[in-house]
Nucleic acid binder design. Structure first.
Lengths: 163, 163
DNA sequence: ATGAATGCAAAGGTTTTGCACCCCC
DNA sequence: GGGGGTGCAAAACCTTTGCATTCAT
């Protein structure tokens, strides 16, 4: 249902060179858990592994189904609880809303990107544009704010140019 | 809970000069309904009136409560159905998500604006910045898309500069 | 051992739907 | 009159929570 695929062309922004950041999520998670006196259970590790294997956005329900498939003994409640934990650990973050109004999550990447939702093919693209970011930082500063993060979703059509 | 207020300073973008667009929403709605062979019922008009009286974002539940207060005979299901209709008519649109994950709606304005969510005071500001819009249009075109609309939400802090 | 985490089931909350009745066009 | 609209209640969903049990540290 929700995919990020090249709608007839290449994704504008390639994935991070190595595919994995230098600190593996396992390290980050372990450190976070230790700091908070939380524990690394089997379920937590499995859920994290599956959640963080997504290259793009996913909804919790999707994750719940995947987890159930390979680990039927893990309950949905645990998935919900752990997604929350992973967000707190900074490994996941909420992202743009799907058109059905469901919250989507994605792996936190070191590189920021904006999104284009194609209204023709329904797919979601990621891109990064320095000019936009720059204009934005400048505008925000001028208004007296300090930006922490942003979500920029553009709804567009890819098909028009082919017709 | 959710307000758009001046967080210690003025809203950057003032509301439309007249407060109402030239075509009243009643006209737009009537034309839309006629086109689709839909009907203008009492409930529909009342719900539209209340929904469109909001100057800023609101959630459906809030609208349901308001409608119930002045028109207890209107059922929540009807409110849901009509919000959907009003979106299709282009009078309302979904907007950024509240931090609790609930979908928010707002009146469609002729003038577009982006949002700043202040992480210090929790309020939502609206602004418009030509440089950002321009950079964006250019970037999108360069990638082969035609933009239809976008959502740009910046999470920022207003308080830092006071400390 | 002890506090955190889990599974289960129940509760909570939101949104949708089926259906009989109503009413706008 | 007929098809869209409504109210009501039930259903369908998604997410959270209480509690007894299990488990990581």
């Amino acid at each position: 249902m929700l995919k990020t695929a090249p709608c007839g062309r290449k994704k504008v922004q390639e994935p991070a060179p190595t595919g994995e950041s230098l600190d593996s999520w396992e390290t980050i998670l372990t450190v976070f858990l230790r700091e908070k006196s939380l524990r690394l259970t089997d379920q937590r590790r499995k859920i994290a592994s599956i959640a963080l294997s997504h290259d793009s956005h996913f909804e919790i329900q999707e994750l719940v189904r995947e987890v159930r498939k390979s680990h039927p003994e893990i309950s949905p409640a645990t998935v919900y609880r752990n997604v929350k934990t992973l967000c707190e650990a900074g490994l996941l973050q909420e992202t743009l809303e799907s058109r059905s109004g469901v919250t989507l999550y994605e792996r936190t990447e070191s590189e920021h990107h904006d999104h284009i939702v194609c209204l023709d093919c329904g797919l979601i693209f990621e891109f990064h544009n320095a000019a936009i970011e720059k204009a934005q930082t400048k505008a925000i500063r001028a208004m007296g704010f300090f930006e922490t993060r942003h979500q920029h979703v553009i709804y567009a059509k890819c098909d028009l140019i082919k017709k």
